[in-house]
Design a binder for these strands. Structure first.
Lengths: 252, 252
DNA sequence: GGCTCCTTATTTACTCGGACATATTAAAGC
DNA sequence: GCTTTAATATGTCCGAGTAAATAAGGAGCC
């Protein structure tokens, strides 16, 4: 039986230390789901491992069985675990995980992210975003262009060193994806955006954005505004390649 | 293969379970989540609507509040609803839904699928699969090629009119995605595959697959086996375009 | 004797019902 | 108009009982 971590839960004479395990404003079950999801994604529980029983685990966490169960349902919904009577709840193999679920991505990046996974997401980005720029060039309307232009202005006003600047960057890419009129692409941005965001902060932490990204963005905008799918796609491809280059360079 | 439900489960003959008439295919909370998810995705509850309270709803469904709540947690995990004290449980706007979650996709296709959404997924497929073929051409090893070849052989043996043939088709595309060594792409296939599967069955229902898809598949395989990324990508693009053409043609 | 097959027994998740706590909104009061 | 108070729905807790799936045990058969 692969047991949890500290099972040293001794119900000795009432010295229960302040039962307030809710670290943040998240609801209790959310905190549990977060904790468990983090532990699973970070490999603390390997695929195939079976968690200790509901009663034991919930008591170890000092929460009710209901709260623990609801947290497990969340993980089940995201494909991380599976539970059957008598067999217990076991961690599923990685290929069953909903790796594009925003929460799962967030958990994957909360610890020490797997290099392979980062590469996967950036490769996906390099595939999807140029194609999205092409579609956007064909389908954008006036409102889309205004949203992109506003985002660019905000990027220039604040730099990428500020939180507002990062938000503007995200908004620019989101506006492009919305302009594709493709819901599936928009949803993908939620997952990809998490990866991009993490690496951007990472680059910033390891000193200096080596390049001014604004001209690249403007080229993308110009292509989309002109309705030139080829130019927009090429410009976006260049932008993503440069970002990947910078990230790779900053990671040594 | 992510469709773990099997809708047309025959109710057990003779033994009519009068006590728990709630659909007894999955676990109870799974049935509730399925029912609610279907109702939300199909538009029965519009975004912004607030569901009736837990006690009322659970009694209306004739289940305990715990089971109902666990079902709602599943929907919350998939971004379909959000619940806050006093405010109740409300349906979130579409752009908050995890549209790439396998279950959500399954629910979307269980009813009368939204044409726009089908178009979105096929557009995504047209973007992702050719790029995947290019990557596979560069990274495949002997085992990958064997898997593809076996799948092709199975496709020829059984035709696409049989279930085994459809499975072989899926396996061929899955083998390509696995050969990219990119987990994010593999996961995408789960969602895209659901759409492809549905439309394939649709085409079959509405009379005749008008074209033999095998030569197109073989061209893709040849490109990958030769390590020719450009050829593999072009062949896959042609394949997807033809499939989209057929689907569009069959939908009038 | 060794084997399969069926029955039983146990373990675990699953469902239930009720109770209390908490947070958020809306109304009442200043 | 702002603060305080009350109402309400979700959130959490508890304990009991049910259903399902595996492991153990015994009857029958080769």
């Amino acid at each position: 039986m692969t047991n949890a971590k500290g099972e040293a839960d001794a119900p000795e004479s009432g010295k229960t230390p302040a039962r307030q395990p809710r670290g943040t404003g998240r609801r209790l079950r959310g905190a549990i789901a977060h904790k468990l999801g983090l532990a699973i994604v970070s490999g603390e529980y390997a695929p195939g491992d079976t968690l200790s029983g509901e009663i034991a685990f919930s008591e170890a966490l000092d929460v009710s069985r209901s709260a623990y169960r609801e947290a497990v349902q969340v993980l089940t919904a995201k494909g991380l675990v599976e539970s059957r009577p008598k067999a217990g709840t076991r961690v599923l193999p990685r290929n069953r995980w909903n790796l594009l679920d925003p929460d799962v991505v967030a958990w994957a990046f909360a610890g020490s992210p797997d290099i392979q996974f980062i590469r996967s997401l950036f490769e996906l980005r390099a595939i999807v975003e140029p194609a999205a720029a092409r579609l956007a060039a064909e389908r954008r309307d006036r409102a889309d262009l205004k949203a992109m232009k506003d985002a660019l202005a905000a990027m220039r006003r604040h730099t990428l060193a500020t939180e507002a600047g990062l938000a503007a960057d995200r908004e620019f890419h989101d506006a492009i994806l919305r302009a594709t009129r493709n819901d599936a692409l928009v949803v993908l941005s939620a997952s990809i955006g998490a990866a991009v965001n993490w690496t951007t902060q990472f680059k910033q932490r390891s000193r200096a954005l080596p390049r001014d990204p604004l001209p690249d963005h403007i080229r993308v905008y110009d292509g989309i505004a002109a309705g030139d799918a080829e130019a927009a796609g090429a410009a976006m491809r260049a932008l993503v390649d440069l970002a990947l280059e910078d990230t790779r360079h900053a990671m040594e």
